[in-house]
């Protein structure tokens, strides 16, 4: 596996590869996201209990799902970076963290906004909202640590260690918050626990999940290319590659 992977660890190869994928992924993201959201907003029927307010789900659920898996991806790339000393993993970490933090913020904000008409309050100390808030704190910690180092390589290493510590803690935090919530719960909040959805709502939701996933991938690719350039700006390959790209951009 190592021999197969090794050529892909070269910055110029990764840069070129990501550049080739980026337009396709971005286009696919725009297409699926547009389709999913328009279907969800315009064509899906209103919920018989929550009326049209449930349409927030088409943003809330995809971002909440991604926020979690992106943190795991962050920790995995940190682990790869530590074990195999791959620079690529450091760049991936720097690219994933802001995207994950933004998606976590979105899921939190939409959850709170959804809570207002449903629970009558903007913020409820609900188990999921609370653990999502803590996840946002963890993301912010990783980002803050990364940017606190003047040397990006050290920053990525330190942030990676923190991300790994965080990912071990996430199940514990989730469990503890859930337990705490059952202990202190006033009323049962069941907005997020729904009966199996009708297909007319499920399909647009699945499409938006796919769309947000592709969007996250496109954003991460773009940021990773930036990260590679920033580290390698004075290397000869950048002159060829980047210069060519700029020329093409000027011609069109």
């Amino acid at each position: 596996m190592w021999r197969w992977l090794h050529p892909y660890a070269k910055p110029e190869v990764v840069y070129r590869l990501l550049g080739r994928w980026l337009p396709w992924v971005a286009a696919a993201a725009a297409l699926t996201l547009g389709a999913g959201l328009v279907w969800g907003l315009v064509f899906a029927p209103a919920d018989y209990q929550q009326g049209d307010s449930y349409r927030i789900i088409f943003v809330h659920v995809p971002t909440a799902m991604l926020s979690m898996s992106l943190y795991v991806a962050l920790a995995i790339s940190a682990l790869v970076g530590r074990v195999w000393q791959l620079k690529m993993a450091d760049w991936a970490l720097a690219a994933i963290a802001p995207v994950g933090a933004t998606l976590t913020f979105i899921s939190l904000a939409t959850g709170a906004i959804w809570g207002k008409p449903m629970w009558g309050t903007w913020w409820e100390w609900d188990a999921r909202l609370t653990s999502q808030l803590i996840l946002l704190f963890l993301y912010i910690g990783v980002l803050a640590l990364y940017h606190a180092f003047s040397d990006n390589r050290n920053g990525a290493k330190a942030a990676g260690i923190l991300a790994m510590v965080g990912v071990i803690n996430i199940p514990i935090i989730r469990y503890s918050v859930e337990w705490w919530n059952t202990l202190h719960q006033g009323a049962t909040l069941t907005v997020f626990e729904r009966p199996p959805m009708a297909n007319s709502m499920l399909f647009p939701l699945l499409i938006s999940i796919l769309g947000f996933g592709l969007l996250a991938a496109a954003l991460i690719f773009h940021r990773m290319r930036n990260e590679i350039l920033r580290q390698e700006l004075r290397r000869p390959w950048v002159k060829n590659e980047f210069g060519k790209e700029l020329n093409e951009a000027e011609r069109t």
């Binding site: 803590i134 704190f137 963890l138 912010i140 910690g141 803050a144 640590l145 606190a148 180092f149 050290n154 330190a158 260690i161 923190l162 510590v165 965080g166 803690n169 514990i172 935090i173 469990y175 503890s176 918050v177 337990w179 705490w180």
Partner: peptide
């Protein structure tokens, strides 16, 4: 250990650590 080389660790350190203390506080 993560912030020792940064000089101005105080606020950053609490930002990093307090979320990790939450389960402890709860239990």
């Amino acid at each position: 250990a993560l912030t020792v080389s940064l000089g101005r660790g105080g606020a950053l350190l609490s930002l990093l650590l307090l979320p990790l203390f939450i389960p402890l506080l709860i239990f």
